[in-house]
Write a protein that binds this DNA or RNA. Structure first.
Length: 297
RNA sequence: GGUGCGAUGGCGAAAUGGUAACGCGGUGGUCUGCAAAACCUCUAUGCGCGGGUUCGAUUCCCGCUCGCACCU
C-alpha cells in the first residue's frame, strides 16, 4: 500500500541571530520562486520592530506582507498584549505552507526559533490542552520537587525524561495530565514534507562583529523609545522583561533598575553578551539536526 | 615613620585547624502550548610571599610585599 504522492518540498533556513538568514531567504525565494514563512517568536508581534531586527517590509493593499518583492508570512500576525504560542504558530505555519504551495511557489521557512520550525515541519501533534492560567497559578506555588513527585504519580513515563528542576516543563506536563486525564503523548520526529535544511553559521569573530554592529544600529534607531512606547500601550514591565534580550534589558533600564550612569554603554555590553549566549543556545538545538547543510555565510 | 584593616578562581564574594559556599562570566548540554523563555553539567590540587607552631594551616604566630584608612 504505497502512497505515492510526492511530498511537498520545503526549504528551511536556520542559523544564529544576525547570521544573515533573512537576506538569504529572499535570495533563494527569487531564485527558485518562493515565499517566506518567518519563524521567529518575537517578530510575530506588531510593534516589536527595532528590537527584533524585523525586516522592513510593508503590507500591500491585499494585506500581504511584502519585502523586496517577496511575500513573507509570520510577521505582525499577533498582538503583543497576548501570548502567541508554538501550537498557534504550528497551525498558522502549516496553513501558510499550503497557501504558498497553492500559488505554485516553494515555501521557505526562515527563522531563529528552532522549536517553532520543528513544530510545523515535524508531525508533532501537541495535546489539545490549552494553557490554563488558574491551574498554572496554583501549580506555581509548589516547589519543583513537589511538582515532580506529583508527575511521577500521574505520568511516570513523562516524569522519567522530563527536566525535573524546570518549573515551566513540569507545570505544562501536569497541566496536560490533570486536564486530559491522560499521559503526555509522545511526539513524532518524522516529517510529512520533503525538507531541504540550510544553515548559516559564520565564524565566531564575524558573528560577534555583526551582532555588535546591529546592536549599535538598533540603539541609534530608537530601540529604547520603542520599548517605552510598548509599555505606554499597556505592556507591563514584567511582560517586556519576559520577551528577553532588547525588550528585557531596555525595560530594566527604563525602570532604572540598572545603573543610570553610562547607561547606553552598559546596555550595549549586557545586550551584546546576552546575544552571544543566545546564539550558543540556538546552535545547541541545531547541532543535533544532522540534515542541516551548513555554510559559513 | 607609626597604628589599624585587608589580601581567596577571569570578576564579585563567603567560610573554616582536617583539605575551599555562592553569584556573574566561561563551557558543554536539555527542549511536548512562556522557547529571545526556562532548566541542567562542568569550571581554584588552590586561599599575596617566606618562615614557624601542629599529626595536619587557606585558617594560629612571626617577618616581608602590596592596597586602603587614620595618625605624627
Amino acid at each position: 500500500m504505497t502512497q505515492k504522492q510526492p511530498l511537498q518540498k520545503l526549504v528551511i533556513i536556520v542559523g544564529p541571530t544576525s547570521s544573515g538568514k533573512s537576506e538569504l531567504a529572499v535570495k533563494v525565494a527569487k531564485k527558485i520562486g518562493g515565499a517566506v514563512l518567518s519563524s521567529d517568536s518575537r517578530q510575530v508581534y506588531r510593534g516589536m520592530d527595532i528590537g527584533t531586527g524585523k525586516i522592513t517590509g510593508k503590507f500591500d493593499v491585499r494585506g500581504r506582507y511584502m519585502y523586496k518583492g517577496i511575500r513573507h508570512y509570520g510577521i505582525d500576525i499577533a498582538s503583543p498584549t497576548r501570548q502567541y504560542s508554538v501550537a498557534q504558530f504550528q497551525k498558522y505555519g502549516r496553513k501558510a505552507i499550503a497557501d504558498i504551495a497553492k500559488q505554485g511557489l516553494v515555501p521557505i521557512i526562515c527563522g531563529g526559533t528552532a522549536q517553532w520550525i520543528d513544530a510545523v515541519v515535524y508531525e508533532q501533534e501537541f495535546p489539545k490542552v490549552r494553557p490554563n492560567a488558574v491551574l498554572r497559578k496554583k501549580l506555581e506555588r509548589l516547589s519543583t520537587a513537589e511538582m515532580f513527585a506529583t508527575l511521577q504519580k500521574l505520568d511516570p513515563d513523562r516524569a522519567a525524561d522530563i527536566d525535573r528542576y524546570n518549573p515551566h516543563r513540569l507545570i505544562r506536563a501536569l497541566e496536560i495530565v490533570m486536564t486530559s486525564g491522560k499521559p503526555v503523548p509522545r511526539l513524532k520526529q518524522t516529517s510529512p514534507y520533503d525538507c531541504k535544511w540550510l544553515g548559516i553559521n559564520p565564524p565566531a569573530e564575524v558573528l560577534q562583529k555583526k551582532i555588535s554592529q546591529r546592536l549599535k544600529q538598533r540603539l541609534r534607531q530608537g530601540m529604547l523609545k520603542e520599548v517605552a512606547l510598548l509599555h505606554k500601550k499597556g505592556l507591563s514591565w514584567k511582560r517586556l522583561e519576559q520577551f528577553g534580550l532588547e525588550y528585557r534589558f531596555c525595560a530594566l533600564h527604563l525602570q532604572s533598575k540598572l545603573a543610570t550612569d553610562e547607561m547606553t554603554k552598559e546596555l550595549f555590553e549586557q545586550l551584546f553578551r546576552a546575544h552571544i549566549q543566545y546564539t550558543k543556545r540556538q546552535m545547541t538545538w541545531w547541532k543535533r539536526n544532522k540534515n542541516i547543510q551548513w555554510s559559513l555565510e
